[in-house]
Every structure is written in structure tokens, then in C-alpha cells.
Amino acid sequence: MSASALTCPRCHESLAPLTAAELAALTNCPRCRQVLEITLLPAYGRAPTVGQVGSNRTADDDPACFFHASKRAEVPCDQCGRFLCALCQLVVAGQNLCPTCLASGAGGPRGAWEKERFRWDLLAWFLVLGPPLSLCLWFLSPLTSLVALGIGVWKLNSPPSRIHRSRRRLVVAVLAAVVLLLAAGGLITFLATNRS
């Protein structure tokens, strides 16, 4: 499986028939002559890990899986304690978890299986800077700054970015929103005073 996954990026010809030594020395695709440079890594030539399906219960006093009553329980979930068969046992970051706990992200080191985080700081900055920079939507700036201010206060304790100082950026966006709101308020007051 793993070796057959190797194909030419251009013509998609499978490179599986080639041996490891031939692949390592390969400079062109044998079919389309596309220049290639392949580096083999640990899983090359090794069959992928196959999951288990779990064994059936043979006696009435065998512990049953919480999700599959006919399957024999092997381990309890480290989070909720439910009995799990080999099929339901999910090993994540050294913990045995059931599918429910994995889906909810309950317990365990946060980030071990997290797929994405919303960047509230980027949204706040977009709301603060977007309307003034768009030129034609500048009049929406007080409204969007107010929304950015609300988002900043509401989401200040949300999980931050793992690569940027998003919390600091969110605070600065809130300050910028306050400055913009004060400026808009001052401008409106000035115009109202002059008109009267």
C-alpha cells in the first residue's frame, strides 16, 4: 500500500514496480521523463498499520463494549470510564479514548488532536481596518469597530494561536477599535456643534 502510493506527480504513473535502490537513484519518471528526486522515508515498503475489529464475547460474564454489546471490552476509556472493544479503543497521546471523548476533545493535552482554531484576532483586525482601508465603506467603521470591541472582550480568553501572539494582537485590536470609536464620536460631535 505505502509503496504503491508513490506516483509520478505529473503523469501519475505508479512507481511501485521500482525497487528502493532504483527509486533512490531515480532522476526522471520512466514514463514522462519528468525530473524527479525521491527520498525514501521510514514507512516505505512497510504495510500501513491495520486497525482491529474487536473480538466477540464468548461468555455472559465477559465485559461488553459500551458501543458494541456483542464485542468483548478490552480497556476502559481514560476519560469517561466506558468499556471499549478493540474497535472503539482509540489511542491518542498515550491515552485510551472512546470515540465520543475524542470527538468532544474532553481531557488530555489540548492540541494533541485539535484540527483547527478560529483566529479571533484576525477577525477583529479585519473589522477595525477593513472599512477605513476600503475607502468606500469607511462610514461603517464605527459599527465594525464596535463589533471588534465586542469580539475582543468576548473572545479574550479563547484558545490562542499556536504560532502567533494572538491574545496580544486581540488586545491591540480592541485598543484600536476604542481609538476609532472615540475618533468617530469626536467627529460627529464636532460636526453637530458646527452645524448648530
Binding site: 509503496a3 521510514p42 484576525l122 504560532i163
Partner: peptide, 26 residues
Amino acid sequence: LVEVVGMVEKYRRFDLQELVALTVRP
């Protein structure tokens, strides 16, 4: 692999034991 797409930060993990090959194509 951490990738910021729009306003979402996405994480993709690759087990080193499961890496088959790196292919460079000009």
C-alpha cells in the same frame, strides 16, 4: 503543519513512522 487559511489556523499532523517519501519536482 500549521497553516493559516483565511481566519482559521489549521493543524495537520504526520506521524514520522508513517512517512513514505518526499518527492521534489522542479
